[in-house]
Write a protein that binds this DNA or RNA. Structure first.
Lengths: 232, 232
DNA sequence: GCCAAGTTGGAACACTGCTCCAACTGTGCG
DNA sequence: CGCACAGTTGGAGCAGTGTTCCAACTTGGC
């Protein structure tokens, strides 16, 4: 009985954990969470599943690590200058997260999952610390710092998650056009609703076309910050 | 060649779409999103996969429908009385959603997915209309209604999603105890962080133990509402 | 009594995450 | 130099998944 046949050629460069995470992010960006399969990974990296599991342990762990990598990079923006207000710093962080999720749609679900399941991880810790530092400067009394920071985090993560375009769209050439199309379809659908039952949706059907996600997000932040300064 | 063997006994009651959705919700409540498998469904309903797919089409559609069912029920609470303020009505709806997600942890990820992917569905429409109606009464000028309603929805959904306890917990007898334990573990972990790098987390480490999710949520709502009344 | 439409159960399929292990590679030690 | 040994790799194989398909059954109307 012959031993196993000669192996196919072996890679000349070792597989690193970083390499794996990077290609995972690539796959996620290209096709959403469903596109991150072990098979796709082995194809891209020209290796076997064993090699991947040797470095990474788990699909879920891989997703968490990918999330960590992206968010850590987004938070690595330097703090605003010395003359910047706490509101400026909050906006800086918030927009960095907004942009990160715009580039990596799969973060919408994963980010919240990570915050909930792993309060000790760098994602939760990083976001909370960076944003929380500002609430004192906003005039929130120390006894309310946790409430204030939580409110800020809840709003920012909620808003950016709900603004993300998620899988299902046909990865069109121009994602902005898709977005406009979605607004059009939505406002048309809302207009066709019963006017008696849905007076509010009818009233704002025009605004949905005109609005800009990013500006609306900044308005929301201004609202929350304004409310926080009055927290006694 | 014999035709296929005699079939096993057939059910004496027809399978309904409602029945399917109800058991789906049961499975989801008991074991999270991972517990909703077609196999588990056929076991519980004592049927085959064909019967289920005849009624439901899709696992994803089943999840969406389950979400719809739960949220619609939560929104079916009657509006607050005539003398109630718009803030009262917002709190009523917000707490109904909060409680729904507390009973059905899997909603945390699914709810946001539904809002993003299906702006025309009853979930998005119902929540937006119900909350949106209040912003006018709060004094927000009509040109800003959409921004104001979006801010409210973003905060509320973000907060309740991030407050949900998700799968992974060992379905202990007392979920409240698990929650306390999580807070303890978190505050212990944060205390062990480098005090120089994480001054804020150190400062609030005591508050995390004392705080109550529901009260914190109401504080956040008060902050947002306060900010909205100042939106010009 | 009978046929058509509606409904069901389960075999089969393609695909998934993951485990396992023989085969290879590089390193350090005698 | 040789050689053992730990580190790393590729891929076969497994248990489990969602989904399709269709013969077999049930029901309702004429």
């Amino acid at each position: 009985m012959p031993t196993r046949a000669r192996r196919t050629q072996r890679r000349n460069q070792v597989l690193s954990r970083e390499q794996i995470i990077d290609t995972a992010i690539d796959l996620l960006d290209a096709g959403g969470e469903g596109a991150l399969t072990v098979r796709a990974m082995t194809d891209r990296l020209a290796t076997g599943s064993g090699a991947i599991y040797y470095h990474v342990g788990n699909r879920d762990e891989l997703l968490d690590t990918a999330t960590e990598t992206v968010i850590t990079a987004a938070l690595a923006t330097r703090p605003a200058g010395a003359q910047a207000t706490p509101a400026d710093e909050v906006r800086l962080v918030a927009l960095a997260l907004f942009d990160a999720i715009a580039e990596h749609h799969w973060l919408a679900t994963r980010l919240i999952l990570q915050i909930v399941r792993n309060p000790v991880g760098p994602v939760t810790v990083g976001i909370f610390e960076r944003l929380g530092r500002q609430v004192g400067a906003l005039g929130v009394p120390q006894a309310r710092w946790f409430d204030a920071a939580s409110t800020l985090v809840h709003y920012i993560l909620g808003a950016i998650s709900q603004n993300a375009r998620v899988e299902g769209d046909t990865s069109g050439i121009d994602p902005e056009a898709d977005r406009e199309e979605l607004f059009d379809a939505t406002s048309r659908a809302w207009q066709e609703l019963d006017a008696e039952s849905y007076p509010f949706l009818h009233a704002i059907v025009g605004q949905i076309r005109e609005h800009d996600d990013r500006e609306q997000f900044l308005t929301g932040i201004a609202v929350v910050l304004d409310g926080l300064t009055r927290l006694r």
